[in-house]
């Protein structure tokens, strides 16, 4: 809640609720993320972690509450959500690369159609980002010819190509074969070290402990507890956190 250096919070959520029909998935979420902060969200499946993440860029519209991105009220009907979304990169569990475009096409399409960058500028940015994720040589490959780990790294590069202020990760390694998880986590660590603001929904407790500034445990649509990762993991205060951690650790 305290602004670091007087800067505006990157994300402020107040009393956010979301229902699908009769099923209330989020039951009043309060969460503030400071610029440069890395927040990891853990919890059992169905606890609402993904929905929480997806409300932040309005892939899911909350039923109630308020969300501000860098001070902008994104639930205001006059808010240009597309402009806000260019500042929020998102990485999905299933990668969701565009199969009809090659890697460069995946990385340039939104730069060109949304940011109106010229081809050369867009491709230059794309190549810089590909280099960051270690896939410079795959620029002309199609997604179908890449491994899962490579696809996810391209997806990260695609999000970075928009030069976002923050990144949302929705279980980025859950669809990967175990031997491919490491390469994706390595790229994410580089982002953390570069000071990127990140919210990471994950089952990778090692990453959360090592790289997270804060760990949030969710269950049944509410935040049960949050704190410094190694403390939450080592000494969970709530019975539900204890029960969950005893199963996954």
């Amino acid at each position: 809640m305290s602004d670091q250096g007087g800067r505006e919070p990157a994300i402020t959520m107040r009393g956010v609720r979301k229902s699908f029909g009769d099923n209330e998935v989020l039951k009043g979420i309060d969460l503030t993320v400071r610029p440069g902060e890395v927040v990891c969200v853990i919890g059992p499946s169905g606890s609402g972690k993904s929905t929480l993440l997806r409300t932040i860029n309005l892939l899911e519209e909350p039923s109630a509450g308020s969300i501000h991105i860098e001070g902008v009220d994104i639930l205001d009907p006059d808010c240009d959500i597309d402009a806000v979304r260019t500042r929020i990169g998102m990485v999905f569990q299933q990668f969701n690369l565009f199969p009809h475009l090659d890697v460069l096409g995946n990385l340039t399409i939104a730069q060109r159609k949304v940011l109106r960058r010229g081809r050369r500028e867009a491709e230059q940015t794309a190549r810089t980002m590909l280099d960051r994720v270690g896939l410079a040589e795959k620029a002309t490959a199609y997604p179908a010819h890449l491994s899962g780990g490579q696809q996810q790294r391209v997806a990260i590069a695609r999000a970075l190509s928009m030069n976002p202020d923050m990144m949302l990760f929705d279980e980025p390694t859950s669809a990967l074969d175990p031997e491919l998880v490491g390469e994706v986590l390595d790229v994410m660590k580089l982002l953390v070290e570069a000071g990127m603001t990140m919210i990471v929904v994950t089952h990778e407790m090692g990453f959360a402990r090592e790289m997270g500034d804060r760990l949030v445990f969710m269950d049944e649509g509410v935040i049960i507890e949050e704190g410094v990762p190694h403390e939450v993991l080592a000494r969970p205060r709530h019975a539900r956190t204890q029960a969950f951690l005893s199963k996954v650790l």
């Binding site: 860029n57 892939l59 597309d82 402009a83 979304r85 260019t86 929020i88 990169g89 998102m90 999905f92 299933q94 969701n96 690369l97 565009f98 399409i109 939104a110 159609k113 949304v114 940011l115 997806a155 695609r158 999000a159 928009m162």
Partner: peptide, 23 residues
């Protein structure tokens, strides 16, 4: 076309029309 394609496109700031036309 899988829903994830639309979501990925929208998350990049592409409008519904651009998403339909390009993705």
């Amino acid at each position: 076309v899988p829903k994830g394609q639309t979501e990925a496109s929208r998350s990049l700031g592409m409008s519904p029309t651009k998403t339909m036309g390009w993705i």
